[in-house]
């Protein structure tokens, strides 16, 4: 970017570059399928979708807890379910040698998944 395009700036250009890079350099989130990595490539795609759904479920659940509409028993059950889902995801990520960054996708106006 030309310096004369920056009209007002209260930070360092390094900060800006880093943030722009985060928004544009999403190499880890790309699906790279090839004959050699068909298993892990597919696992990455599937786990990303599962993680997206898990996060949405968790968010909705917290809204319900916050809204006070759940009984004690329901909260206990919810906690157990969410905890087991998270542990299972960790297991699967470990099994396929994937990290949170690998499963991150940009959801456009909603920001990053993770």
């Amino acid at each position: 970017m030309n310096d004369n395009k920056i009209l007002f700036n209260t930070g360092s250009l390094d900060d800006l570059s880093q943030e722009v890079a985060k928004l544009t350099d999403n190499d880890e989130s790309k699906l790279k399928l090839s004959p050699d990595n068909a298993d892990s490539g597919l696992a990455k795609l599937v786990l990303t979708l599962i993680e997206l759904i898990r996060k949405l479920v968790e968010k909705q659940a917290m809204r319900r807890v916050d809204g006070g509409s759940l009984t004690d028993e329901e909260i206990e059950r919810l906690g157990e379910t969410l905890m087991k889902l998270e542990l299972k995801m960790e297991e699967l990520k470990k099994h396929f040698n994937l990290t949170d960054r690998d499963l991150n996708i940009n959801l456009g106006p909603l920001g990053d998944l993770m």
Binding site: K59, A61, D66, G79, M83
Partner: peptide
């Protein structure tokens, strides 16, 4: 945080987990 409504002072690991997630959500 979400505490049991029956007056119990100890909370389960699952309720602690919900409270942690609730704090992040808030």
């Amino acid at each position: 945080t979400e505490k049991p409504s029956d007056g119990q002072t100890t909370t389960s690991v699952f309720r602690d987990y919900v409270n942690k997630k609730l704090a992040e959500h808030r």
